[in-house]
Amino acid sequence: MLHIVNKSPYERNSLESCLRLASKGSAVLLIEDGVYGATKGGSFEGKVLAAMADVKVYALAPDLSARGMADRVLDGVSVVDYGGFVDLVAEHTNCQSWL
């Protein structure tokens, strides 16, 4: 399953809930304000790093750049462009958007 999170982890609990409920082998794509969860130095860094033992985490490059976070991405998070976003959707049978 591909989980898509677009809300900041500092405003909503979408990312925290997603990471808690995502099955081993799932993928999590952070877009829009959700990319703040993929950055170094934040309070969610530990949770995201721990979750990467079971799930693959991706972040959308244009959204990281738009927020000035392109140089602060956590090690292990894969940065994708819009084509990569489309590829992830096509690769996964199911997608879940976390609001």
Rank of each mutant, 00 (worst) to 15 (best):
S14D: 14
S14Y: 14
S14H: 14
S14C: 15
L15Q: 01
L15F: 00
L15C: 01
L15R: 10
E16K: 13
E16F: 10
S17C: 11
S17M: 04
S17F: 13
S17D: 12
C18M: 04
C18L: 09
C18T: 03
C18H: 04
L19F: 08
L19G: 11
L19M: 12
R20Q: 11
R20P: 00
L21E: 15
L21P: 04
L21M: 15
L21A: 10
L21N: 15
L21W: 09
A22E: 00
A22W: 00
A22S: 14
A22K: 00
S23Q: 15
K24V: 14
G25E: 07
G25S: 13
G25R: 03
S26K: 03
S26P: 00
S26D: 15
S26T: 06
S26G: 08
A27S: 15
A27V: 07
A27P: 08
A27Q: 06
V28A: 00
V28M: 01
V28C: 14
V28R: 04
L29G: 13
L29E: 13
L29D: 07
L29H: 14
L29V: 07
L30C: 08
L30V: 07
I31L: 07
I31H: 00
I31C: 02
E32W: 01
E32V: 02
E32M: 04
E32D: 13
E32N: 05
D33A: 08
D33W: 02
D33R: 04
G34K: 12
V35M: 12
V35G: 09
V35C: 06
Y36F: 15
Y36G: 12
Y36A: 12
Y36T: 06
Y36N: 03
G37A: 02
G37H: 09
G37P: 06
A38S: 09
A38M: 03
A38K: 01
T39L: 11
T39R: 07
T39Y: 08
T39S: 10
K40F: 04
K40Y: 06
K40G: 11
K40Q: 13
G41A: 09
G41C: 06
G41R: 10
G41Y: 13
G42D: 03
G42E: 11
G42I: 03
S43D: 11
S43I: 05
F44A: 14
F44W: 06
F44V: 13
E45K: 02
E45L: 05
E45Y: 03
E45F: 14
E45C: 00
G46H: 08
G46E: 04
K47I: 11
K47T: 11
V48G: 04
V48Y: 00
